[in-house]
């Protein structure tokens, strides 16, 4: 059987809200080491990889590996019924066709359970290579969200260029053009407000803003986001979810014809 309990149930609510528009369905792969999900968007342009470690949960038990096919829109409907302060427990018997979600209020005076119907999903697992990136940028997640949101109102694609001067986001559209440059900034006292640029070599890549904007739905999960860039490779956008794990997004670049 599988059982995972998390006192801070709001984290699960935020996770599903972050993913549900990008991926309509996918498999929660559960094992003794935790819960993972790998899924592509419907146009196969980007990949989402979620890792939640067993020791990040308040209680975790998984007797045998299972792939639980989840429709994220439906999971979102159920999680919207959980209070922000609720403890959430996920439960499934071996080979079950439902996932039980149990919500307990902070003072234990309200307990509810919902069964989510599971799906059978054929999913292709992609191998994500470990690699060194030409540029790694850590910045406040709210800053990333603001940049991609602002640029989405001007253009469809963004040229991200990392140089010694900083990291520049450029777009153009019917109304005109926009450039936003961020510089290395470690002066804020709080580490989560700092911008740290680690540049091995200059790099410039073009991406569809629609997806970068969609990734920023994970902003409530983490104060910082990390962007990693290498020439001719997908951008890697990572949010650390406290001690629980991480959400990683990979977006294939636009390539000049």
């Amino acid at each position: 059987m599988f059982e995972a309990r998390i006192t801070q149930g709001s984290v699960l609510k935020k996770l599903v809200e972050a993913l549900k528009e990008l991926v309509t369905e996918g498999n929660f792969d559960v094992s003794s080491t935790g819960l993972t999900l790998q899924a592509m968007d419907s146009s196969h342009v980007c990949l989402v990889s979620l890792t939640l470690r067993d020791d990040g949960f308040d209680h975790y038990r998984c007797d045998r590996n299972m792939a639980m096919g989840i429709h994220f829109g439906n999971l979102s409907k159920i999680l919207k019924c959980a209070g922000n302060e609720d403890t959430i427990t996920l439960k499934a018997e071996d080979n079950a066709d439902t996932l039980t979600l149990m919500f307990e209020s902070a003072n234990q005076d309200r307990i509810s359970d919902f069964d989510l119907k599971l799906m059978s999903i054929e999913s292709e697992h992609l191998g994500i290579p470990d690699q060194d990136y030409s540029a790694e940028i850590k910045m406040p997640s709210a800053e990333y969200q603001r940049i991609v949101r602002d640029l989405t109102s001007i253009g469809d694609t963004v040229l991200i260029s990392a140089t010694k001067e900083g990291i520049k986001f450029s777009t153009s559209g019917d109304v005109g053009t926009a450039n936003i440059t961020l510089r290395h900034n470690t002066t804020p006292e709080k580490p989560e407000e700092q911008t740290i640029i680690d540049l091995k070599e200059p790099v410039a890549l073009t991406f569809a803003l629609r997806y970068l904007n969609n990734f920023s739905k994970a902003t409530p999960l983490a104060p910082q986001v990390k962007l990693s860039l290498t020439k001719d490779l997908p951008i890697f956008v990572e949010y650390q979810v406290g001690d629980l794990g991480n959400v990683r997004f990979f977006l294939a670049p636009k390539i000049d014809d």
């Binding site: 592509m40 146009s43 196969h44 342009v45 980007c46 990949l47 292709e124 697992h125 992609l126 191998g127 994500i128 290579p129 694609t157 073009t206 569809a208 490779l233 997908p234 990979f250 977006l251 294939a252 670049p253 636009k254 390539i255 000049d256 014809d257």
Partner: peptide
């Protein structure tokens, strides 16, 4: 003009 690449052309199936 530019073309949107697919993610699977970078990460192999496994």
């Amino acid at each position: 003009k530019s073309t949107q690449a697919k993610i699977s052309s970078f990460f192999g199936g496994g």
